[in-house]
Design a binder for these strands. Structure first.
Lengths: 256, 256
DNA sequence: CGTGCGCTTGATAGAAATCAATGTCAGTGG
DNA sequence: CCACTGACATTGATTTCTATCAAGCGCACG
């Protein structure tokens, strides 16, 4: 069952490339970046805004709770987790990947309300927020795009609230797997074969479960033939049934 | 223990006043509304935007999942719940009260992703969204204020995610009571004596618990002398200890 | 070769859900 | 006026899902 898998595992960890001042024009984040859809003149201006392409080593923090907001960041390549600290423990609130915008929680107060941690060596585009706000005045459609992204974020979080508030462990895991697949799919990778970038503990914190439960759930899904797991490499063998579990069909047996 | 309480219970249900085209200038929503802080000229323009003050009867829906976004709404007086429908059941995502902005989840897609239900007879200011977007171009600071409110909403939801993902039932209830008190306090009412507007079932859906658990928790808090409950009237007798429970101190005994 | 971290697996405990009555109260109609 | 109804709420008994406690595995690394 745990025979060695040979599979394409989604985007490779970035080789920490040297072009630290690349342009948006040669960026492959697809339709996800804030700058997408701008005309070429606006895109040049936006290019000038992007202060730097910062490299973040895996395990390092991009920003942390309590820091003043200097910049928002778009993930150019790599993988992050955002973590909100609470009285009863931490909650992972998202696993941002290529193209996603980081730091929106700080826009209201000017102070970061969570940590952003790189899960692997990553590169981000730094968007100095003060300059971005000025650019809103100049580039038509940019601030519309901005608040739409915030609305998407609100929806993403509500999706997670339903998961945390209403779903059984099995359904949470099924939802997580399907969502991860979809995230890879929207970036041109396989929705059924991918490499998890986060630890079991991170998954647990994200899904409101313990690490032991995560382990048992993956074991059970494997036993049912739904998935194949090798360390952090995942294959969804029966994505349809997993999706049904996520949707609340398929009786959702207990956790043994 | 259940002696009849005589107390001021927060804002009275509105008398469904006749002034359906009141100005922002005579609005008492305090510093919470989108129009707050505008200069008088801008405020007049904003006034003209506000299409109507719609009355919503208790139990009626302001909008529902799947409807196209026509307008955002500010609660002028009254009380709402927003409900997100999910495969495993519904989740109450907020209890908007005076001054709060409704409909932000629809900005990204143009389609409402949740229901807004009035918990009592209420009045809202209708902000036609297309017109609002045009106004962003004209009124300096308005769109900044707008996306800041979205960021606050993101933070509010993250707070709730921590509650749903990490807290025990007792801690959730304590947090809920403190949060409700704070919401009333920020509107000039007592933070320790208030009238809940929502059913036990709504509270349960909001906190990710069953209605029975809510009932037992309130009974237990009462037995401990922390609160006094009479139907939906609540008095926090020991707000400090309740706050400690919310913060994770105070050992959080089981639910019996 | 030990040491530590991430992960798995098993046994047990416990918090909250579920199932099942019962109670309260407002509204309605006989 | 009182019985009936239905929504909302409380309370008790029991079940069950998941956490917790505990042990061990496998692999990378010093």
């Amino acid at each position: 069952m745990n025979a060695p898998l040979r599979m394409p595992l989604g985007p490779a960890a970035p080789g920490l490339r040297a072009d630290m001042k690349g342009q948006c024009s040669d960026c492959n984040t697809g339709g996800l970046c804030l700058a997408t859809g701008l005309d070429s003149v606006s895109k040049m201006r936006f290019d000038r805004l992007v202060g730097q392409h910062r490299r973040i080593a895996g395990g390092d923090m991009l920003y942390r709770t309590g820091q003043p907001l200097h910049s928002l960041y778009t993930v150019r390549c790599g993988f992050f987790k955002t973590r909100r600290r609470g009285p009863a423990g931490d909650q992972i609130t998202s696993f941002p990947m290529t193209g996603e915008l980081l730091g929106l929680e700080a826009v209201g107060t000017g102070i970061h309300q969570s940590d952003a941690v790189a899960l692997e060596d990553s590169i981000v585009c730094e968007l100095p927020f003060a300059a971005l706000e000025l650019l809103f005045e100049d580039i038509p459609g940019l601030h519309r795009r901005f608040y739409r992204m915030m609305s998407y974020e609100i929806n993403r979080q509500q999706h997670l609230m339903i998961l945390l508030g209403n779903m059984r462990a099995e359904q949470r895991m099924a939802t997580f797997l399907i969502d991860m697949g979809a995230a890879y799919a929207s970036r041109g990778y396989s929705p059924v074969r991918f490499q998890l970038r986060m630890s079991r503990e991170d998954i647990g914190s994200y899904l409101g479960l313990t690490i032991e439960s995560i382990s048992r759930l993956l074991a059970r899904f494997t036993k049912l033939g739904l998935i194949t797991v090798n360390k952090r490499a995942i294959v969804l063998n029966d994505p349809q049934r997993i999706a049904e579990m996520a949707s609340g069909f398929s009786p959702c047996s207990p956790m043994v």
